[in-house]
Design a binder for these strands. Structure first.
Lengths: 132, 132
DNA sequence: GTATTTGCAAATCGTTTGCGGCTTG
DNA sequence: CAAGCCGCAAACGATTTGCAAATAC
């Protein structure tokens, strides 16, 4: 019953653009990049596909300090739960796993009587390449 | 030379409203509460003071999933760095300290050659009172 | 008295949605 | 052909800003 997702040119473009780099980029950024690369995509289409990719867990989303949403491809590679070490200058991000932190968060939540405990953990800094 | 901040009625109102509860609330929420309490404050004034309080580190800010900014009073009590255990239903939040996590984040950043390492850590769940 | 603060309305800005036309299966 | 897409333009909702009147020091 679930709607099928079609293999359209735009879907491919957006996904390819996202897969291309290990960086967090906003919808507007990707839109600009695609346009600059000569691909006549619509802004709303970019938004729609990014959302879809996020829903399918193929893309991670983080909120920038000023409220914008930034996306990063994160296919099957990161099958499960993980965090990021993000360069606040270029957006480059690498996956981080830390079962000890997962356990810590879970424990803290339970100790205080919370249900459905979840958490967000991101590490920011300026990567070696940007330190120039 | 730094501009002095004046002791105005509105400034007091906003700060008092924030101090009143250990919950994260949006500017709009606080505005509504103040108005409901019979205080004729302007929405922009609320925004301006919340920003000011955040700049002075008297208020913590978190971004809700849909990009809104939520504030919580956090005066001298939490002098330094800390995190929160937030109820995703009522917004109630309690301070959490975890030096082990701080160290972990710092270490991960350095091991990868990052400078100015920083991090965000928040734990979400449904508090005992809301579990009903 | 004078610089700051207010509040309203208008302006921003990222993001969403309505909808006729185009594509895919 | 029918069910989904596309893209553009209009709609949205949170936050910001311009500006004249009100207020603090």
């Amino acid at each position: 019953m679930t709607a099928q997702r079609r293999a359209t040119t735009q879907r491919t473009l957006v996904q390819a653009a996202l897969t291309g780099q290990d960086r967090f980029r906003t919808a507007q950024d990707l839109f600009a990049e695609l346009r600059a690369a000569g691909h006549p995509v619509g802004l709303s289409t970019v938004y729609r596909h990014l959302q879809a990719l996020a829903d399918e867990h193929l893309a991670d989303v983080v909120r920038t300090g000023d409220g914008e949403a930034a996306y990063r491809y994160c296919g099957a590679a990161a099958g499960g739960h993980h965090h990021h070490l993000i360069c606040r200058r270029c957006g480059y991000a690498q996956l981080i796993r830390a079962s000890s932190v997962e356990r810590w968060a879970q424990r803290v939540g339970q100790e205080h009587g919370y249900r459905d405990v979840d958490h967000t953990v991101e590490i920011f800094g300026v990567c070696a390449r940007c330190t120039g």
